[in-house]
Structures are given as structure tokens and as C-alpha cells.
Design a protein around this nucleic acid. Sequence first.
DNA 1: TCCATTTTGGAGCAGTGCTCCAATCGGTGG
DNA 2: CCACCGATTGGAGCACTGCTCCAAAATGGA
Lengths: 224, 224
Amino acid sequence: MELMATKTQRGERRADALSRERIVEVAIEILDAGGESALTIRALTARLVTGTGAIYHHVANMNELLAAATDDVIVSAMTNVVSVADPREAIRATALAVFDATDSHPWAGSQLSREPWQPAFLQIAESLGRHLQALGVPRRAQFDCGSALGNYVLGVAGQNAAHARLHPHDRSAVLEDIAARWAQLDPDKYPIMRQVATQLPEHDDRAQFLVGIDLILAGITTVL
Amino acid sequence: MELMATKTQRGERRADALSRERIVEVAIEILDAGGESALTIRALTARLVTGTGAIYHHVANMNELLAAATDDVIVSAMTNVVSVADPREAIRATALAVFDATDSHPWAGSQLSREPWQPAFLQIAESLGRHLQALGVPRRAQFDCGSALGNYVLGVAGQNAAHARLHPHDRSAVLEDIAARWAQLDPDKYPIMRQVATQLPEHDDRAQFLVGIDLILAGITTVL
DNA sequence: TCCATTTTGGAGCAGTGCTCCAATCGGTGG
DNA sequence: CCACCGATTGGAGCACTGCTCCAAAATGGA
């Protein structure tokens, strides 16, 4: 019986053996299903059937795990970007890849804007910088232009995360919700927000994000 | 003795009586001194000499307290903005006020990008929108332009918070730290980040932030 | 003076990240 | 075949968190 158990156990172990990759994998599943607050070591130990010690043997701490998960998601999103010749189009594509990634994995957006020196952001910044160079931005201005683009992207990524925190699985509900709040503001103090509230429900986050990118690109063109 | 105690206590109570304002006030002190992680209800009960129940009688929960503290800091920063006629200059001034506020109170930057529907952000957005209108941006484009500016500002605010988290009280150390990390990157994978690393130590966050604003403003001008 | 209401302080609960350690496993040298 | 030893595992337990609940005290009006 022990031998059999060992045998079958081995077989199973092979399938879902504990490893850094496996842990990051189910961490992403948990995060996608329940958001940042759902990822606890207890939840991990329950999902993989094990104890806390086993997990901490493969992963230093919660922060590192979150960073690894974010890296995973972002890197895979970036590698799927089809390379185009036009630098402007390449920047749009890169930015959109980040947008889409942080839209379907809002926790990644949160982490991204929280610890921007980690590999995930490096990849993004390097890509943006490369295309800026190709665009002909003078060396002296590359840093400033890259910073502007990067900060904008990070800002929107954080926004996506905030929206998801408000309404975990209903994207359009977020806009309706915010529109309803803004519509009830004091007309004297917030005339513009009230006006914007009427445009909110029928607006497209993703398209607006791209408009912002184009705005910055237009600005960059003026300093060429 | 009881009477005396009551009397003196009354006098003292007047000075540091428990109230929502007083709680928010010391919350800000704690946040400024030790960052977001330092603000715990235990720390509050210790600082004001009281219990947890007393605090929760004035404040709904931790999130609301954080929001109130952020609101306080941002509103006071915004009201100190001197009004200028030129819309561009006004936008710069508003953005700079937010930058400076989230630079000296990084926790506010974090909260700002985390829950952007709260009064603090409304104030910012309304101000930016007003000046965009004054700039002559057509009604149809106001939302998009405001969104671009707002997201950029929120992105930088979050960045300020991240930097402070890395080195709580030494701003220049952050840049040196990040520069050191980037300098050790693989030259083949991250040529641009390595090049940027050399510019990092001698660069000015604040000035670069303004360049970003000007870049977006330049872009907006092209759609006028 | 009495009483209803507001305000207070703190014990206690459920949950968190993480450390620590005894038990077990798996491959290697004798 | 065994004995060993490092790598791996599971979980008890600690220090900490936000928050609830309630008995006590202070306050103010009739």
C-alpha cells in the first residue's frame, strides 16, 4: 500500500509538483479570480495542498511573489506585440499591450505603479525608449519623453486597477457608478465634472487611452 | 478630586479633544513621519491617548481616514495655487501643486492613484478641466485632454509614493539606488535603460514632471 | 436631580505575513 | 541493500493588523 501510494503520489507530484513556477501560476489564478486581496499564503496553501513552509521555501515573500506574477503577465503581453516598422505605431502597440494586460489583470496594474523598478516595468520602459530613439528624438530629450510616456502608462494602469477594485467583474458598471456620483455633485463647485459625467457612460476607456498616447506623441513631434 | 480632575480634564480636553479633525490631524503627522504602513489604529490610540472604540466613533474605517487625510493635504495645496490668467500657466501651477503635495506627502500620492473618485481628485480634475476650457479646447475634446493630463499627474503621484517607499527620507538616494540597479542590467537586453541610468543621478524629478506637462500641452495645442 | 444621549476605552475576534522546526523524501556513497 | 544527508515539506505558533462589541463614563437638557 505504501509502495502504491508512493507510486501514484509520485505520478501526481509530477503533475502539480511544488515549484516557483507552479506557485506563481496559481497565484495568478487566485489574483485574477479574486483580486489583490484574495492572494494570501493561506489561500495558496489551500489551493496547492501544502503548508506555508513549503511555499516560503520557493518564494522569499509576498512582495516577491506579486512581482513575479506581474512580471509573468507583462512579459507575455509584451512578447505578443507584433513588431511594426513605424515607430509611432510601435509605441501605440506597446502601450496598448500594457493597457490590455492591466485591464484583464488589474492587480498587475496596481503592482506596476507601486514598484516600477522591477523587471516588468524595465521591459516596458526599454521598449518605449527604443521606439522613441527610432522616431528620431534627440538623445537629450529621450529621457524626458520616455518619462512622460511611461508615467502616463503607469497612471492609466493604476486607474485600471482602481476601477477593478470598485467593481471586480463588471467594467461598464464602474463608469455608471462614477457617473452617478459625479452627477450629484454641487453644480457650482464642480460644473465640469458634472458635464463630464454625462459623457462617461458612453465612453471607451481603451480608445481614450490611445488618444492620450497620441496627444503625447503629438507633443513629442513638436520638439523633434 | 473628581471635580478637579474633571475641571483640569475639561481644560485639557478642550485642547486635544477627540474629534474627526483632530484624528485626521495626527493621522497626517503619523503618515508624514512613518509612511503609509505606520498609520495603524493602535498607533493612533497611542498618540491620542484613547482606545479603538473612541476612534471608530468619529471615523468609519481606515480607508475613510486615509481619504480624509489625503483630501486635507490636496485641498490645502490646491487653494494655495495663485491664480494666473494664462490657462497654460494655470495648468502648470495646478499640476505642480499636486506634484509638490505628493512629494512631501507621498502617502497622499499613493491614495490618490488608488481611489481617484474621492474629493481630492475631483478637485484636481475640476481645476484642470476649467483651465482646459479657458484654453479653448473644443467641448468634444475636453474629456480626452483632461483624462490625459489627469492620468499623467496620477501616474507621477504614484511614482513619488513608490520612491518614498523605497527610501523614506532620502530623495536623492532613490535616484542613486535605481541608477545603480539599472547600470548593472544586461547591456544586450537593456541598452537604453543603462544609458538612462547615467543621466539619472543628475536629473530633476520636478523639472522633468513639468516637461511632461508641457509635452501634453503641446499635443493639446495641435488639436485646437 | 434625573435620565437619555453621546462619547469613551479596551477586551476580544478573525484574519494577516512570516518564522521555526520536526518529519519526510530522494538521490548517492559505501 | 542500506545508511546517510541535504533538499523539501507541512503546520504550529508568533506578532501584528482592522474592526466589533459592550460596559462605563461624561454630557446636556427637562
